[in-house]
Design a protein around this nucleic acid. Sequence first.
RNA 1: GCGGCAAUAGUCUAGCGGUAGGACACGGGCUUCCCAAGCCUGUAACCCGGGUUCGAAUCCCGGUUGCCGCACCA
Length: 495
Amino acid sequence: MASAGSKEGSGDGIAELARRRGFLWLAFEIYGGAAGFYDYGPLGALLKRRVEEAWRNFYLKEGFYEIETTNIAPREIFEASGHLESFTDRAVVCKHCKSFFRVSEGVDVREKCPECGGELENAGEFNLMFQTRIGVPKGGRDEGAQKKSEGYLRPETAQGIFLNFQRLLRFNRDKLPFGVIQIGKAYRNEISPRKSLIRLREFTMAEAEVFVDPGEKSNHPRFEEIKDRKLWFVPSEGEEGEKSIEEAVRSGIIANEYLGYHIAKVEEFLGRIGIPQDKLRFRQHRQDEMAHYARDCWDAEFFSERYGWMEIVGVADRGDYDLSSHASHSNTDMGVHGKLQVREGEAEKTKAKIIPHVIEPSYGIDRIIYALLESSLYEEQVGKEKRKVLRFKNEIAPIIAAVFPLLNRDELKSKAKEVFQQLRDASIFVEYDDSGSIGRRYRRQDEIGTPYCITIDYETLEDDTVTIRERDTMEQVRVPIAEIKEALFAQYHMD
RNA sequence: GCGGCAAUAGUCUAGCGGUAGGACACGGGCUUCCCAAGCCUGUAACCCGGGUUCGAAUCCCGGUUGCCGCACCA
């Protein structure tokens, strides 16, 4: 019998398994690789696709619509968004202790090293955005024309949504609040990408932008539904601990109901795809670590056995920063007619135009994939053997089921292939395997997280029933072939 | 970016100046009526570029990648 199963101590094993079984490969490997770039192999791509699909459906159910915007944008977009200024920086380095300082942090090359008092030298300019050229620059060496043709790969997907705000508002028939989502690549030329999928130069983000009347932020229509959920909060000031969302909002730890609601939704989604709740906490940014656009920000952090606490989702209150900035830079009206603000005794009934505020849950999909891989891997002692199991939730498992003939005999093989094809034809993504012993084949599937194995034996040939073996319990049930599809579908979509 | 350590089949590793070996995995065959069994058999590797040497996987230099620490992470 299986023991309860233990976690791998360091989390090292998952990197090896992910490489070997085709989840995750270092990009450009045959040319020596490049730091910060990973490719998803066949199983990794399936897993990622299922996570993205789960995320998409989750927010579509909230009534949000998805859009898809460009990865490259002209310079002026990032002048307006503030990324050009915040992402480009001059740096100095200490000749003596090699400490590295950003000029914007107030350390100048004429000064002495704050660490050791050594002499400083210029370390050059660095820009976290990848720069490119759009079209053929006109005007030769003319600086203005050169700048005009500058383009950048987006460092977040959000801007594409802000840029389309007017259109989106119109699409939503001029009513607030509404939400828009986008899943896509973002690019940051990190100084030292490291730690597997945790810091990449090209990565996938899933972002939701919720536009709300600032006067309504403290009043989310569905707050009731989530208010009693308990989460672990680490506020920037004061004690950390478990609190209900309602407590957190009432006591001012979380600034408003909208932020509280979306923090709760983040927790709900992560739980749904299988991130264990006891490895999650919500940590508030300190003032000095906040992004330039944020007025408040909470990170959902996952506790990695290997790397410690790491951010996997950020929920930011961006205020009106982005819309106001794009409004003034592009000379576009981003205002919305708010609700009537009629004060008692006043005759005035003009609808004031307001700039909506933005609440933004921003998911790092690759980091979530890492968290899922690491937290799903269990090693169990089964008899004398160790069994490695990826306990993925059914909803995200790359492969739903595998079909085996019990023995490597023609009559069983042809029946098994028949069942396999039947399931594939029914759009159920199954694998077929007849190599090695049945136990070996079960283990292969355990290691890639396949929830069910369907085995064709001699009884099948007599009465058209098969066994379905469940991954975590290793228990089997016998079901008629005609009912496999229903049995799998019921399981697959339920949990 | 800085410093330390490392890099050998798909994976883990032995070899540390002279024929690259093992284990697991994988393929083929036999066996096997349900959990990595056994037997036979096969495929498969010295990160890249220079240097030293009669001879380099091994020593030296540079690069790349990975791990750890510092810095960075809007």
